[in-house]
Design a protein around this nucleic acid. Structure first.
Lengths: 147, 147
DNA sequence: CTTCTTGCAAAGGATTTGCAGCGTC
DNA sequence: GACGCTGCAAATCCTTTGCAAGAAG
């Protein structure tokens, strides 16, 4: 875990046990999405004694340092994930809430063009696609057959 | 305002003064976006005595009836607007928060294709493009010149 | 008249903050 | 040793809800 320590220092964030634990969680699950509360419960359950308030403070610092990113998925659902440097979209299941990452750079030009058409200077885009995931489709079909 | 009355009845919503006032606000500003609080302040300031709780209840009913739509713009900013039947995206200024509607149906196919690639059944997509609006660009340039 | 709406005030969940004490540099 | 970090509890913000009184059909 020297890496995490160094990474935090490099980012100008004082390396503490709590911060290393949070960053480690993200590094151990590079493509997963966590809410603040999930992080809190997971770390306290595992080993790390830390408060929810600290989780929020730490997330805000990691965000500021660009080590993680966050996404609002509607319904006041905010999730954080490791910043792997590739912009992506989120595909969210309307039924179970599962979140998939979609890496697709082909549309970025479209967003910049949309911004340009309105004389905006493009900064970023947040894209969330909602639908029914394979598992929930299967479950629905099951129900339809039995019901 | 007979129209509003009829429209509510047709939607199965009992026509009350508060509900007509809220729907009228949307009809009078067909391309504007309002937060629940903005609606509340606007109507109470104007004439209509209604509570914030009622605004939320009314918005939820108009949403259910499909008369309006809502959008989450990140930062827990939720806005409502008249449902004009054309799906669109939002272009948001990072500095002043201004919201523009962008009508572009060319991307919908792309989102459906993205969903299909992950075996999802497409339902909807939420697209928010962030940037700097013309006014804020001008303001920044002003500052840069003078500062 | 019956049923649905409203206002109020209180509850709710998510996030933030002030402050005293402890860890990191 | 100074400064920044943490936990705790309280404060916020936005939204929802229970209940008694008031309007709509």
């Amino acid at each position: 875990m020297r890496t995490l320590y160094a990474e935090l220092s490099r980012a100008g964030i004082r390396a503490t046990a709590s911060r290393i634990a949070v960053l480690k969680l993200f590094r151990d699950h590079p493509v997963e999405h966590f809410s603040a509360d999930q992080i809190y419960r997971r770390l306290t359950h595992d080993e790390e004694p830390l408060s929810l308030a600290s989780v929020y403070r730490i997330l805000s610092q990691l965000l500021g340092a660009g080590l993680i990113t966050c996404a609002s998925l509607g319904d006041s659902r905010v999730v954080y994930e490791l910043n792997r440097g590739e912009p992506h979209y989120h595909l969210v299941c309307n039924h179970c809430g599962a979140i998939h990452n979609v890496t697709d750079t082909t549309l970025n030009l479209a967003y910049q063009s949309i911004a340009a058409q309105h004389q905006f200077v493009y900064a970023s885009a947040s894209v969330v696609v909602f639908g029914a995931c394979p598992d929930c489709q299967a479950a629905r079909n099951q129900k339809a057959r039995s019901g």
